[in-house]
Amino acid sequence: MAKAIDVAKFFIEIVANNPNEDAMTNLRLNKLLYFAQAGSISSLGYTLIEEDFEAWDLGPVVKSVYKTFKEYGRNGIVNQSFDRQALTKEEQLYLLDVLRKYSTMSTSSLVNKSHEKGTPWYEVYYSTGDKIIPKYRITEYYEHIEIVDKFTLPFTEKDFVGTRDESNHLVLPQECDYAE
């Protein structure tokens, strides 16, 4: 599992280096962290973020991440140095997919999406007692919901001609082999 601050810094760095992205505010960052956690079970096979999320008024929040960037208020968070070794390549690619899907949504839309009736945030926020959103609730709710679009090639096996030999080299049928 990854530390929430490492995932947060990854998101901040990517957005800071892309002039077409909206500013990464603390509110937006925490919603992206939540959706990254939500989809990690189906995409990675494990929960990505080790810290718990809390059910706050404006949606799920990792308290330590909120406190780290609280000084920015509603302003965009400036680029943070990120240690690429903190996340695996597979995790980084997954997080890029999360950004790709959710970067087109406004921050208020992300808040609304996290507030939908029946979501783990909704169930915890409107219950009495502890405001920690248990990981198992996030896992159970989102395990069959596609959080990020699965990348697929627009081709099928039938679109290709030829076979692979024992060395895994492509062997074309004689009628398609124009090399000779």
Score class of each variant (00 low, 15 high):
residue 2 A to K: 00
residue 5 I to V: 14
residue 6 D to T: 01
residue 7 V to C: 02
residue 7 V to K: 08
residue 8 A to W: 05
residue 11 F to V: 02
residue 12 I to Y: 06
residue 14 I to R: 14
residue 14 I to M: 06
residue 18 N to T: 09
residue 18 N to A: 15
residue 20 N to Q: 08
residue 22 D to C: 08
residue 22 D to K: 11
residue 22 D to M: 15
residue 23 A to L: 12
residue 24 M to K: 14
residue 26 N to P: 06
residue 26 N to K: 02
residue 29 L to S: 03
residue 30 N to D: 08
residue 31 K to N: 05
residue 33 L to G: 00
residue 44 L to S: 08
residue 46 Y to I: 04
residue 53 F to A: 08
residue 54 E to H: 08
residue 54 E to G: 06
residue 55 A to L: 14
residue 58 L to H: 10
residue 64 S to C: 10
residue 67 K to V: 02
residue 69 F to K: 15
residue 70 K to M: 15
residue 70 K to W: 07
residue 73 G to I: 06
residue 73 G to A: 13
residue 76 G to R: 15
residue 76 G to P: 08
residue 85 Q to A: 04
residue 88 T to G: 07
residue 94 Y to L: 02
residue 95 L to I: 08
residue 98 V to H: 06
residue 99 L to M: 05
residue 100 R to Q: 11
residue 100 R to K: 09
residue 100 R to E: 10
residue 104 T to M: 11
residue 109 S to C: 03
residue 111 V to N: 12
residue 111 V to C: 14
residue 113 K to H: 09
residue 113 K to G: 09
residue 114 S to M: 01
residue 114 S to N: 10
residue 115 H to P: 13
residue 115 H to A: 07
residue 118 G to T: 04
residue 119 T to K: 02
residue 119 T to A: 09
residue 119 T to W: 07
residue 119 T to Q: 12
residue 120 P to V: 07
residue 120 P to D: 08
residue 120 P to Q: 03
residue 121 W to S: 13
residue 122 Y to F: 14
residue 122 Y to E: 07
residue 126 Y to S: 10
residue 130 D to H: 11
residue 131 K to E: 10
residue 131 K to T: 05
residue 134 P to G: 03
residue 135 K to E: 06
residue 141 Y to G: 12
residue 142 Y to L: 09
residue 142 Y to T: 04
residue 143 E to K: 15
residue 151 F to T: 12
residue 153 L to Q: 06
residue 154 P to N: 14
residue 156 T to P: 01
residue 157 E to T: 07
residue 159 D to V: 03
residue 162 G to D: 00
residue 162 G to K: 01
residue 165 D to Y: 00
residue 165 D to H: 01
residue 168 N to E: 15
residue 173 P to W: 05
residue 174 Q to C: 01
residue 176 C to L: 10
residue 180 E to H: 10
